[in-house]
Simulated assay, not measured.
Amino acid sequence: MNVTVLGTGGTIASTDRDTGAVPTERGSALVEDVPALADYGDVSAEQVAQVPSYEMTAETLETVGERVAELDADSETDAVVVTHGTDTMEETAYYLDATLQPDTPVLLTGAQRRPDERSSDGPANLVTAFAAARAFADGGHGGTYVAFDEAVHSARFATKYHTSALDAFSSPGVGPVATHDRNGIRILRRPASETAHIPDGTLDPTVFVVGSGAGVDDRLGEAAIEAGADGLVVNGTGLGNVTASLGEFVESTVRDGTPVVVTSRCVAGRTSPVYGGSGGGETLRAAGALFAEDLSAGKTRLKLALALSKYGENGDDGDGGENDGRDGALRGLFDG
């Protein structure tokens, strides 16, 4: 098996410095420090970025995506492992799956403890990623996954739910695709891309996330529109509800032609437009707002940006006409 490791930085590659921990180790060094990886096949390593994942930009995401696409098209590559910071790992995984839906298994992994900390988890997570890569490649399974703490999560559902615990990732509502133990990989459900495919999309459109909560008014939303937002994600409460002030803002924003997608700040469960009133989900749905079901606000922001780049931003349905074509395509993606 031929595996290419793409290094991007993150805690797995960071060491402590006077001003705080920063990525200093390259992907090739991470591989060399875990001799057991050679048992899984021929390994090569490339560096495509060297940043903490909270500094991931749209340009960096697209650079990673371009290289993964090239490797996916290369018949000599059996699997790709991306070393990455945990803060935005789930977003990079989702972006890769949405834009590429690779035939080659792509595994993202990282660490909660640096190489220079006691009991660093990076080496064990790399072994899990490689074990899953081989098992998935042998089974002819493509897609994008997060491999962490002896579990493998689908990009669609992977969520970092804990700031510091070693088992930082979960898949609320569905559980992991596979687990890893001394006997190898145990597949729990068929590995595959579980993400809506949006090929040829870019992150050029501007999409902001506005959160709701007790006492929140419409000022951040208005600021987002004034800043040139092409679309908005409103991270609501419960089933997808917002304050009355924010609800009235959502109604007027949709009416003016800017798409709004409602998510929930709850970690598990999906949105459901039930309640009336100025900020109730049913009122927002009737006004034309879209709902993200159980997709997080971060992933929804990426999905909306990709969709707008493909189907047209505010005032353009992609063919120079009205918004009807764009809005129908968005509704199909979010409500289909």
Rank of each mutant, 00 (worst) to 15 (best):
D317H: 04
S245Q: 13
T63P: 14
H84I: 04
S53Y: 06
A155R: 12
V68K: 13
D18K: 03
V242W: 04
A223K: 09
E91R: 11
G9Y: 02
L290Y: 03
F334S: 08
Q101R: 12
L330H: 04
G276S: 12
I187D: 12
G211A: 12
T4V: 12
D167F: 03
E150V: 01
D74P: 15
S272K: 11
L333G: 06
D33T: 02
G228L: 04
T88S: 11
H84T: 04
G122P: 15
L302F: 01
E322K: 07
R270A: 10
R189F: 03
F157L: 06
S212K: 07
T206D: 10
G328H: 04
D138H: 08
D167N: 14
S28W: 02
A286R: 15
V210R: 09
L302C: 05
H141T: 00
K299C: 12
V267T: 14
R67F: 01
F249Q: 13
L61M: 10
G228E: 07
G332N: 10
V43S: 09
R182Y: 02
G325I: 00
G277I: 01
G143N: 06
L220N: 11
S193I: 01
R186T: 12
R118K: 06
G9A: 00
F249N: 13
E90F: 02
G201P: 15
V81P: 15
V261K: 07
V233I: 09
V274C: 08
L302G: 08
E117D: 13
P176L: 01
T253I: 03
Y54D: 13
R265P: 15
Y275S: 13
A329I: 00
R118T: 08
T300Y: 03
E322Y: 09
S75T: 11
D116V: 04
T283P: 15
V3W: 06
D335W: 05
H84F: 05
L126F: 05
K160N: 14
A79D: 07
G332Y: 02
L302T: 07
G240Q: 05
L302K: 07
D324K: 05
A329C: 02
V152F: 04
A268I: 01
E66K: 09
A158F: 07
E313M: 06
T15Y: 04
L188K: 07
A137H: 06
H84R: 08
V254L: 01
R67K: 09
